[in-house]
Structures are given as C-alpha cells and as structure tokens.
Write a protein that binds this DNA or RNA. Structure first.
Lengths: 266, 266
DNA sequence: TAGTGGTCTAGACCACTTC
DNA sequence: AAGTGGTCTAGACCACTAA
C-alpha cells in the first residue's frame, strides 16, 4: 500500500489535472486537511511537498499553496541563428526569435559581464587550448520580462576578440548584431555549429538565479561555433530552466557511403 | 538561516563531491546522526531525502543509504541513423551505436509490442491525419543490460506498413535492419528528420518502467521522419532517463538570403 | 495581527533485507 | 532476530505575507 501522503498527493494531483483545481487556484490549507482527517500536519505537508517537487503547485508562507501556471514552451530552432538577423539587420541573434514572435524587446532583459578567466576543462577542450589558458568569458542572464529563463556564457580566444566591442565591459548586448556580428567584423564569419544538450540537477546558485521551483531540473547546452575552415571562435554554455524550452533540429539522414557535401553531419 | 536539514544535506553533499564518500560507500545511518546531535530522526531523514532528490544517493530499507554511481552519459549523434547501418548492413539502427562503441548486443535488450491504435493529438498532427485516425504503434523498451534506458514508440500510417514485417507482432527488433529497412523495402526511403526535445517530470508509470530515482526527470524526444518528397513515414516518441543521455547536433548556420541547397535548416 | 506554510522534536510503529 | 530506512502523530514554535 502506498503511504498516506502519497495517496493524498495523488488525489490532489488528479483534481489538478482534471481541472477541478485550475491554475491560480489555492489548494486547501494544510490545517484544513488535518482537521478533515487526512493525517497529521507532517503527513499533509509531505503530500504538498511532493506536489511541489512534481511541478504542479508552488507553496509559500503567508500565501498558501497555489496551482502553477503551465508556462508555454518556447521552441528553439536553428533559425534563431540566421545570418540575416545579425549580419544584415539590427537585431541581436539571441533575442531575434523573440522579436520575430511579436514580443517586445526590453533593453534590460539581458545583463552581461565580461571577464578574462582561466579556461575550465570543457572550454579548453572545445577551443583546443591547454587547460587553464586565458580566455574571455561573456556571461549573460536572459530574462523574459521579470522572469529569468536562462544563462548563457560565451568563451572566446583572446586573439579573436581583443580590441573589439566584446571585450568592452559595458552591460547590455554586445552592441549592434551581438557577438556574432563582432566576430564577423573582425574577420571571423561563423559557418557551422555543434550543439550538445543534457539535463541535470541545478546547483543551489542556479536554482536561485533562475528562480527554479524546488525539484526543477535544468538543461545544459554546449554550443561550439566555427568558421568555414573549422576554427572554433566561440564556445558557449547555456543553462536553461528545463520546463520553459524545447529544442528542435532538422537534418538529413546521413549516408556515409556518399561523399559528404558538407563538412558536418558527423 | 537555512533549515537544519538543509545544512546537514549540504555538508554531506560536499563530502560526496569531494570524494570523502565515494560512489558505493554507505552514508552514516540515520540513527547515528540522531545520536551525534544532528537533530531528530525526521530532520535527518529530510536531509537524506533531499540528497536522494538531488540524485546523489539512493536509500533503501534494510540496505542503508549509498552514494550513487555516476552512470556514464551516452552521446546520441545523428550518425546513429547512418543509412549504411540499416540499408546495407545487418545491424538495427537503434542499437548500431552501441555496437560501434564495442558493447555486445544482446537480443533481449529490446522488447516490442505492435498494435493498431487511434492516433493521439501530437501523432495525428505530425502525420497530417485527423485526430483519432488509425495508426500502427510500435512500442519498444530499450535496456542496457538489466537497466532500462528509454522507451521508443513509433507511429506509422497503415498504408505504409501493412503487409510488412513491422506489423508482425513477434517480439524483438523489426527484423534485419529495423523499421527503416522495412520502410525502405516497401519503397519509402527515409531522407530527413526533425527531432524535438524537452525535459519534463515522468509519470508514475514511466518512473517505475525506467527505474528512475525519486525526483529524476525524463527527456522526451519527438522524431519526425520523412522521405525525400516530404511524406512523413514515421513519427516516434522517446522517453529517456534524463541523466543517462546527451544529444548532439551539427548544422550550418542558416542564411536565408541564399537559396537553400537543401530542404532542411528551416 | 491574523493567516499561511515550514521546521523540529520524541517516540511509536511499519517494511524490507540480511543473517 | 537484528538492522536499516520510512511513516506517522501531536504539538510547539518559526518565518513570511497581507491587511
């Protein structure tokens, strides 16, 4: 037999999924359920904690326990990197899809700090540098209105960016066209990318920074950006609130018996 | 100030990360810590439960609380779909990368059931069918040894697969070359795919089937497979234990001012 | 100040594993 | 039978929010 707190949680979850408790509604108070004979305060609390870990509700002292809004998934496709957006236009690649979807761009939705650091292992490996070599790190926290959605930290080799706007520590996007535009102006036109994704538990810092619900996971994205000759000009690590994004990729089914038309698809 | 159970959990987590408690080691028993003055049994238990939710330990009655082995991430790149593997060779596409990485293929690592069902909404949308139209569902549970790693359910239009080996309800892979080979033999050579990924909380059934640790998330993968003329011949939904996989994609940076050489990269 | 969830205790008892 | 984690209670008290 399932524990009492699990049964209670399941009953409440069912009511939430059926719509009996709608998003924004408040669940019964813990003490009410104690009085109704659902168990002791600890038992009811355990049920509420389980519902919170499952992402169905958020609890807060003073407010009560409220059914969560299901934040719409934001779809990230490779069209967000379209050269038109950063080479020809006036948009910043990273926010271009938001503009395209009709949402207003507010300047403070991205904060940025640039610093010169010793390359961590994965960064060094991506750039083909020895571990601990100097690189520039450009760290951004991206928000959708007041809600932080993800962090994105780009790592550059000093010889690619020194003397450019990227190194300028002024907050805000890296100027017109963003980081790709700066690299383009410096003679490094990006040509192809590799993105690698995996899910993991957030660190305590990340949970706080991204305002994650307890138990919520993150998706870490590693993006390696290269010029046409294969030089890695940017390696970026993104940490995304897992519930707020979906990623989409289109590709041809590879056929290694044919000469490859393009260098990628490995 | 952080709660007592949180502080205890953080101290233990630090010892785990530093290696003082190595994978496989047993943590102090709950009663020991109670005696050592770390708090009441409930308090210590709360700390242990947090560590479990964070994926650091597994607890079981009788055994104790043990530091988890970090399962190696398995990287999934698009090379796993290489036509050579299913068109020319004798391997099944889905397990081909396992063969390539030197691990033995055991026949019982994949179980399969085929049934004719009414298409759920996402499936119908992908196939361009009305909701509730008949489709064939081929559901597999894939294991790595005794450990289930993911489920994969392919949906096919009846006119594409009726009379083929796919519809044969015999357990095991869909014969030599797998599902793509069967489609190929039936005149539908797959050409391009779209994969969409997002993370979510597992259902209770999934948690049990995939033997997920409490609090562990899953990554859901939607794969749409098309022939060269754009006909969707397979739509598949995979549910993966989030900690056991990473996905990798290579692509060219799109440039919508150029005529596209290939049909994808949208 | 009243209302809400969160923490904590001390102890009883249960469920599963190993010997 | 002994050892381990899991559940549950009754109640005290704390922390945060809103009026």
């Amino acid at each position: 037999m399932a524990p009492k707190w699990r049964e209670l949680a399941d009953r409440l979850a069912e009511k939430i999924r059926s719509g009996e408790y709608a998003p924004g509604d408040q669940l019964p108070q813990i003490r009410e359920l104690v009085d109704a004979g659902e168990g002791s305060k600890s038992t009811v609390h355990a049920a509420y904690k389980a519902l919170e870990a499952e992402g169905l509700v958020t609890s807060s002292r003073g407010h009560g326990t409220v059914v969560r809004q299901r934040a719409p998934l934001k779809r990230l496709g490779i069209a967000r990197y379209d050269k038109v957006k950063w080479r020809d236009g006036d948009e910043v690649a990273f926010i271009a899809d938001r503009v395209a979807s009709g949402r207003a761009y507010r300047r403070n939705e991205q904060t940025q700090t640039v610093s010169r650091v010793k390359a961590p292992a994965v960064v060094a490996a991506a750039h083909g540098l020895p571990e601990g070599a100097d690189v520039y790190a450009r760290a951004r926290l991206v928000k959708e209105g007041a809600q932080p959605t993800h962090t994105l930290t780009s790592y550059y080799r000093p010889e690619h960016v020194e003397g450019t706007r990227i190194v300028d520590p002024t907050p805000g996007p890296a100027g017109r066209g963003g980081g790709f535009r700066v690299l383009y102006d410096a003679g490094y036109e990006i040509d192809n990318m590799t993105e690698e994704l995996f899910a993991r538990v957030p660190s305590a810092d990340e949970a706080k920074l991204l305002q994650l619900a307890p138990g919520e996971w993150v998706v870490e994205l590693h993006r390696t950006t290269r010029t046409v000759d294969g030089t890695v000009v940017e390696f970026a690590i993104g940490v995304h609130a897992a519930t707020r994004f979906a990623w989409s990729y289109d590709f041809k089914v590879p056929d290694s018996t044919k000469a490859e038309v393009e260098g990628e698809n490995k």
